[in-house]
Design a protein around this nucleic acid. Structure first.
Lengths: 230, 230
DNA sequence: CAATACAATGGAACATCGTTCCATAATCCA
DNA sequence: TGGATTATGGAACGATGTTCCATTGTATTG
């Protein structure tokens, strides 16, 4: 059952619409809220309808389908990130800032990491490519190498993003992360030394590493590689 | 009670089963066949049961759930790739070979690209990490930098893998790829030059680029970066 | 002001999915 | 041989995304 708002003055012309009217923006905002608080799997059309105190059909009047909803939510998050980064810093620092912005956004909204892979021509991906690639020219990267350089950086960012999204999907929303890392590290350490010598050696590093620092180390590594073709 | 059974040798325990008996291996093989020919979305438990001429319940006797089935199928593909690569080539070439092996495998089995992100402690991911990281030591990468270097390479490979998987998901199974690239390139070229100058410039490169070559260029870029910390 | 057209709503209904349950069949073991 | 165990196949369940449609609210028109 639902409680309707009481239209107080019905004699005068009420230009304003009902204050609880649905809109594409309100739907996207509600979707983001559900995704952030309860995870990717919790965003069902029914849950969304309940959260908005409406029915499923009303949602489909404003949004084509769930895919479009997720894509729009992703675009909203990434656009916000890129506008916050902006700035006219030194190009190398700007690239790091863009990458870290995306990383941090996915830390807060893990579902974005999975969405970035779908429909790469959507605004979200364009923003990232532009944010990274736009600074490569200022870095002095030869024109012929800019496409490869931007592609490498963006794909690396995507890889980390997807991995973080996957990790968030596996965990309970607030599982102790260090406990999880320790458990995987223990599995690695218990592997057959003859078959997996490297992975075994990396077990302790996996346990102690900081995701954010390591992500940045990867960006720096790629930037160093880009520097060699200057 | 007398024994009138067939000669029941302890070691020759071979009683023939029905030749069409199900098995975990047959189920995984059938799943891979459906995934490869009809795409990720076509793999439903019902389709799989029909393909094996059995019922859904029988499948669940051999396999825990669909996740495990997909993970096992992924492990099978990646294990095959890594055993084929192997070889004692020069480390730099070996890393390129491993990366290309994964790339080519995902070109044939796009669904693998999406699966690699789930449960990174599974055999498939271990194989890749070991295949890449194991050669870094031989490359002369300092011990302290090996974790970051391997992580960067693997995440880059993952990013490309996920992107290719997404592309394959969007296309009809045999859509003309160059036509698709041309259409996206046209969209890029039509963007606002003030907002997306870099993406616009890259449009023609996007149209003409070769995925495989560009992937390798990224690997080389990262290897070059790794070389700077030697 | 009444009548009407249209945007918007909410919930029932539908097809499909992964999974569970269970009656049965096939096979093994004592 | 007979009971126990393994294996099978299909019905049934709950949940999902989506469509359909009767109904409501609002704006426009005669």
């Amino acid at each position: 059952m639902h409680v309707k708002m009481v239209p107080m003055a019905k004699k005068t012309h009420r230009i304003e619409r009902r204050t609880d009217a649905l809109s594409r923006e309100r739907i996207i905002a509600a979707a983001i809220e559900i995704l952030d608080t309860d995870g990717e799997a919790a965003l069902t059309v029914r849950a969304l309808a309940a959260h908005l105190a409406t029915g499923s059909g009303a949602i489909y009047w404003h949004v084509a389908d769930k895919n479009e909803l997720l894509a729009a939510a992703t675009d909203a998050i990434i656009a916000r990130v890129m506008s916050e980064v902006a700035g006219g810093a030194e190009p190398r620092e700007a690239i790091r800032a863009v990458a870290l912005g995306v990383f941090d956004a996915i830390d807060v909204h893990p579902w974005v990491g999975a969405q970035l892979f779908r429909e790469p021509w959507r605004p979200a991906m364009l923003e990232i490519i532009e944010g990274v690639g736009g600074r490569l020219q200022a870095l002095g990267v030869p024109h012929a190498a800019q496409f490869d350089a931007a592609s490498a950086l963006v794909h690396y960012i995507l890889g980390v993003a997807g991995q973080n999204a996957a990790n968030a999907r596996v965990h309970a929303p607030d599982t102790d992360r260090s406990a999880f890392l320790a458990s995987v590290a223990a599995q690695w350490a218990a592997l057959d030394p003859a078959r997996y010598p490297f992975v075994r050696q990396m077990a302790t590093r996996l346990r102690d590493h900081d995701d954010r620092e390591q992500f940045l180390a990867g960006v720096d590594l790629i930037l160093a590689g880009i520097g060699t073709v200057r």
